[in-house]
Amino acid sequence: MAGTGAAALAYGVLIERNRFGVREETVRVLPAGSPSLRVLHLSDIHFVPGQDRKVRWLQGLADLEPDLVVNTGDNLSHPQAVPAVLEALKPVLRFPGVFVPGSNDYYAPVLKSPFTYFTGPSKHTREPKELPWTTLFGSFQDAGWQDLTNTSSTLDLPGLRLNFSGVDDPHLQRDRYPGFAGDDVPADNTAAAGTSAAPEVKIGVAHAPYQRVLNQFTGGGADIILAGHTHGGQVCIPGYGALVSNCDLPTWQARGLTSWAHAGRRVPLNVSAGIGTSRFAPVRFACRPEAVLLTLAARDS
């Protein structure tokens, strides 16, 4: 048994955590007749300097030619990681994008016992070290990505208006639900005055999928919700799945496309298993790192 455990740990550290892949999903949430929209969902990169394989893989995601990039936070795992993260994401920064922060954008991870995750959502046990998140997010905005930290925003694409509602990291209890932009709020790419509004889709964006936030998005009229944070459980049992979600989300929803029900509505929920890990727990088992390519398609008329 000891040998089997050692072999599984070695596999998780040396092999599976670097087996990056793209999960593809199709979700029918757009108004009838709308053109399809390709959304690249990135989450939990947790970059550490020297991860050259991760850099090359992230750069290659630009070949997917998404219409929109949604980054749900935790890009960093080291104080000196910002230049490498920006180099890795440079090819996809040319596409329209939005982002929200995660706790490991603000603060560096700390060494702790992995068994604490089985007692409930993780907490900082001492004053954390702040990371250079303002530099990272400033660069995102300079590239044209919209910051959705506790705010709503709209973006017009050909034939479709995207209405976003985003929150600051719920894991740090910084979330303040802003609702969705009203029809009287102009988009960043406002059409000429006097033209009719395009069909609209409402997208909720958060780092950590806590139930209170999912309820707010759903009750507010979201058509789809995107989140990360859970790492898909990170160390899972084959045939069973995640043992923890590191929040109050049911473990069976810790990775993948499911749905969330609240106030008489049911909304598609995509939770990314993430791309990286904390630098103090560099292991994945039965839970490969992933980016997600969502094709948002029109509902059946």
Rank of each mutant, 00 (worst) to 15 (best):
I203G: 01
A191K: 12
Y177W: 10
E200R: 12
V185I: 06
I225F: 14
T218V: 09
P209M: 05
P250E: 11
N163P: 00
P114H: 08
Q216E: 15
Y117I: 11
F217R: 02
A108L: 02
A108E: 05
S196Q: 01
S153I: 00
V205N: 02
P186V: 08
Q146S: 03
A192Y: 09
E127G: 03
N215A: 15
P186C: 07
F180S: 14
W133L: 04
A187R: 06
P238Y: 06
V185E: 09
L111Y: 14
K112Q: 14
H207A: 13
T230P: 13
T151I: 05
V185A: 08
E200W: 05
A198W: 08
T154A: 12
F115R: 11
Y240Q: 15
G233P: 09
G179K: 03
A254F: 08
P170K: 00
D147S: 12
P250F: 02
A143R: 09
G239W: 13
K129R: 11
N150C: 08
P170A: 00
T230D: 06
K123Q: 13
T190F: 05
Y210G: 01
T116I: 07
G220R: 10
G138A: 07
V110P: 04
A192P: 02
Y117C: 13
H171K: 04
P209F: 02
T135Q: 15
C247R: 09
L131T: 09
G232E: 00
G144F: 12
R212G: 03
V110T: 12
R126N: 00
G232K: 05
F217H: 12
H124I: 00
K202D: 01
A242W: 01
V205E: 01
G138L: 13
G138F: 04
D183L: 11
Q216R: 10
G120Q: 08
W145H: 06
G241I: 14
P132E: 09
T149I: 01
P158W: 06
D248K: 01
V235R: 06
Y240H: 15
H229D: 02
T149S: 13
F115M: 14
H124P: 04
D188L: 14
W133S: 07
R174H: 14
P170M: 01
L214Y: 02
P114L: 09
D223Y: 09
P238H: 14
Q216F: 06
H171W: 11
A192F: 06
